[in-house]
Design a binder for these strands. Sequence first.
DNA 1: AAGTCTGTTTTGTAGGACAAATAGTCCGAA
DNA 2: TTCGGACTATTTGTCCTACAAAACAGACTT
Lengths: 243, 243
Amino acid sequence: MTSKDLRITDESTTLVDRVEEKLLDYFRENKLMPGDSLPNEVELAKALGVARTVLREALSRLKMMGLVKSRTKVGMTLAEPDILGGMKRVMDPRIMSKNHLLDILNLRVIIEIGMSPFVFMNKTEKDIEELEQIVDRERVLRDNQLSVEEESKFHFKLYEMTGNDTIIQLNQIFAPVFGYIKDHFSKILDDYTKTTPDQQRPSHKDLVNILKDGTADQFQKAMRKHLELYFHLLHKEYQKGDG
Amino acid sequence: MTSKDLRITDESTTLVDRVEEKLLDYFRENKLMPGDSLPNEVELAKALGVARTVLREALSRLKMMGLVKSRTKVGMTLAEPDILGGMKRVMDPRIMSKNHLLDILNLRVIIEIGMSPFVFMNKTEKDIEELEQIVDRERVLRDNQLSVEEESKFHFKLYEMTGNDTIIQLNQIFAPVFGYIKDHFSKILDDYTKTTPDQQRPSHKDLVNILKDGTADQFQKAMRKHLELYFHLLHKEYQKGDG
DNA sequence: AAGTCTGTTTTGTAGGACAAATAGTCCGAA
DNA sequence: TTCGGACTATTTGTCCTACAAAACAGACTT
């Protein structure tokens, strides 16, 4: 047993927590749909047997997630939640554990590789043109690297081509994490780019060309290669945490 | 201009919303780290110029995300947030728009394809054995399909092999969505399995064998093929939405 | 029929009171 | 001295009341 297992969880469930649960149960059991209206606060509080303030603290949480909307006089209605609403607010690399950061980086790499078949499927003339413009504007810095802005602009366009709003949002939410990682693991990343021949690392330009004239499979492999340095980083840093 | 552009957004930002923002700003500006303690509620409310009830509604949101912890007498402390905390609560396929559901399905497919290099990298003898056990227990139903439980058990093990807690959690949170999709798009899925020769659809058994004796590239391609029916579903249903 | 006014309902905000938990202190006994 | 128990002060948790603000509904006016 490690010291981690000894810590007191102290999950002293508060009344607000339970009310929040109850509300969600209530929505599900009554099969409420977006647009359906809820009882007013006073009634709800009475039905739940709690003070209005407690009810409102629970409702406040659901409002943050977009599940509940309210307007004076009109009352409260259910709505389709913004599942990323909470994440958007609290994503801050500064306060995240190293392992958590690596998890997110890993997830990003996974998404970029996994989405490449869809990017290839959805590509249009216009997309290719835009990508070419982005690539043409890129200015190479030291060690064949790009600025963070240029780097992310290119990848953002690829995300856009998935046509998947959730994924696009996810990329935006994760963005600060990569900036942070590039800063804090720059040594490992630099070492890798210096010791790996450029030919083994497809540039953005190469990717566009393959997307344009190659096959879906070639594109995915190239993306995989393009992201290889993160494989390297993940492999090296996850190891450390285990020890 | 479509009718969608006419709707009243009514983003009447409430005081609680602004206090929530202010708190997050305050945390960032003061570079608070997990473990650091916050001023007590009365002081905070005074500093913000709002009633304690309002402050508490804002804090309640941050507590839901795990960013703030509180204990009587001790006070409040900052903690590393659970970025999926909000999502976990409100993920309910019943109330999600079709496009949103497809986005999630798409994301799952993307993750499963993208994670296959990592699954291959991380595989151990023990993992293979477990997978073989899972596959051996599987009972084929009509049309070469499996029960939802068996299906998800196999894939869950693959997620586990990524060693990425965030991704494992994400899979669990998404699980209800797939159940829902399998129910509601069963016609399309059944049609596909009926009209596509079994040889073109790698079974779980095939996947394990490739994972065991094949290459990383073969494994990824097999995963891609295994998920092909979802490509089919996504292609067909996303189309509809556009019209 | 159209616009205006007024009353009423419901959420939004404020503030006070007390309960419950518990860290810290002090005191007394082994 | 050290341990334990009682007390105290502090802070969050819960309840309650009051009023402000928004906006729907219906009556009333022109």
